[in-house]
Structure formats: C-alpha cells, structure tokens
C-alpha cells in the first residue's frame, strides 16, 4: 500500500474513531465532568457538524467523479449521478442545520427547510439504489442466485414488519402538528423503502467478497443502513422526547457519512484508474 493511500485510510479511520470516542461515552455517562466542562453540547456540535458536512461533501464529490469516470453510454452512470445528487442535497440540508447551530447558536427547529433537502435527498438515494440493482442485474455477471434474493426479500419483510409495528405505528398515537406527523412518519417510511434495494445490493456485494468492489459496497451500504437507523430512531426519539439518546444519533449520522465517503472514494479511484 502506498504512503498516500495509507494516509487516506488513516484520515477516515481517525475521523470514525474520533466520533465514536467523543459521543458514545456520553450515552453512558452524560453527567461526567468531561461532558459538562470539556465536551460541552456546544463543543460537540462544533465537532460533529463540520465532520458531517465534510464527509457528505466528499461522498457527493466522489460519487460525481465516479459518474464522470464511466463512459456516457454506461448503464450504471445514472445511478452514480443520482447517488451524488442525493448526498449533495443531504449536504445542503446539513449546512442549514449548521447555520442554526454554529452561526446563530440556536437549536435547529423541526421541521426546518433542511427537511426539504433531506427528504428529497432520500428519494434520490432510493432511485439510485434501484438503478444500481437494475444495471448490475443486467450486466451479465453473476450477482447472486434467485433463491438468495428471495431470502433477502423474506428477511427484509420480517424487519419491515417489526419496524412498522414497533416503531412507525406508535408514532400515530402521539399528538403532533400535521407537518411534524408528515415528517416523523415520512422519514421512517422512506427509509423502509430505501432499505429494500439496499438489502438486494448487499446480497450482490456478498458475492464480491475478496474483491475491491466488496470494499466499495460494504462501506456504502453500511453507511446507508447507519443513517436509516438514525432516521428511524430520530423520529422515535423526537416524538417520545428521549433526549439522552442524541449522542447515539450523532454517532450514527457522522459514521454513516464517513463510511459512505470511504466507499465512494474507492469506486472513484477504480474508475479513474488507467
């Protein structure tokens, strides 16, 4: 491995470890002096918000470079463009949250204009995942047996049923404004729709174990699963006002964007190679 590549790997690993080390203990010891005197809520915001912005920007940029790296008639090109656009919309949404939190020093409101970007970004991610499923399925290479895809579908159906029953349905019983209800239900439902093609792609990625494409897809899909978990928990926590679990959300979102940026970088490097 070249020194340059070692340095890049170290940057991603350091960012991930820093986020885990800063936020996870807070979920267990929220009243520790570290969190009341050093890593205060403001200090943590100044850590997490720029990290999220930076890695979302990287993810969008590397996905765009990948899109540009494929020939114009390549069927997978629209999938990478859609993925890049989705992450760029997430970046804009995160920038709006950052404006509230880091510049105006006020908690970001919910709903806010950022939700428009997060919502439409998720729709583009769903589109991109289906475009990947279609392009890879038609590639002529072996991306998994029908039985294995059927099994993925069954596992997904079980997970979705559990989430609908345990997480989404209880949201209906809490008084909320129409907009809050729309978003609190909308995010988890969109995420459920997103997870299905992610499951199918994950099944395909399993057949790539040992290859560089396994790295690409394991990072990207793990990242997407992390933020969908974050969205679902966010809706649940905000409706039921569980405040102490915010650090977990920060870990899920920040690590998600770091993983996705890592995966898209590997793919961008692959398509640019001559």
């Amino acid at each position: 491995m070249s020194p340059e590549r070692l340095g890049i790997n170290a940057l991603f690993m350091a960012a991930l470890l820093a986020i885990l080390a800063a936020f996870l203990p807070q979920a267990i010891w929220p009243d520790s002096p570290i969190y009341t005197e050093v890593l205060t809520p403001t200090a943590l915001l100044f850590l997490s918000s720029p990290v999220k912005l930076f890695f979302l920007f990287l993810a969008a940029s590397f996905a765009f470079l990948t899109y540009r790296g494929f020939a114009p008639n390549n069927p997978v090109r629209p999938a990478w463009l859609s993925l890049s656009s989705g992450f760029f919309l997430f970046f804009l949404g995160q920038a709006i949250l950052g404006w509230y939190q880091l510049i105006r020093f006020i908690p970001s409101p919910f709903p806010s204009p950022a939700d428009f970007f997060f919502f439409s970004g998720t729709v583009l991610l769903i589109l991109s995942m289906w475009l990947f499923v279609a392009a890879y399925g038609k590639s002529g290479l072996s991306v998994g047996s029908r039985a294995s895809f059927l099994l993925s579908g069954i596992i997904y159906a079980g997970l979705a049923s559990f989430l609908i029953y345990k997480v989404i349905a209880p949201l209906l019983s809490v008084p909320q404004t129409r907009m809050e209800l729309l978003l609190n239900l909308g995010y988890p439902i969109l995420d459920l729709v997103l997870i299905f093609p992610v499951f199918l792609l994950f099944r395909s990625a399993l057949t790539m174990r040992g290859g560089v494409l396994w790295k690409v897809w394991s990072f990207i899909l793990a990242g997407i699963l992390a933020f969908t978990a974050g969205d679902i928990l966010y809706s649940h926590f905000s409706v039921f006002e569980y405040k102490n679990l915010d650090p977990l959300l920060d870990v899920l979102y920040a690590s998600s964007y770091i993983l996705i940026a890592r995966g898209t970088l590997v793919q961008a490097d692959l398509v640019r190679r001559t």
Partner: peptide, 18 residues
Amino acid sequence: EKLAKGLHVFIGEHSTLA
C-alpha cells in the same frame, strides 16, 4: 468480450481495458 461488457458496469472502461 462478454465479460468485458459486464465488467464495464462495475469498474468502468479503463480498468476493464487494463
């Protein structure tokens, strides 16, 4: 030729050509 058509979709034209 058949393999190359599939590989294009995953790793791009340059890597496939290599």
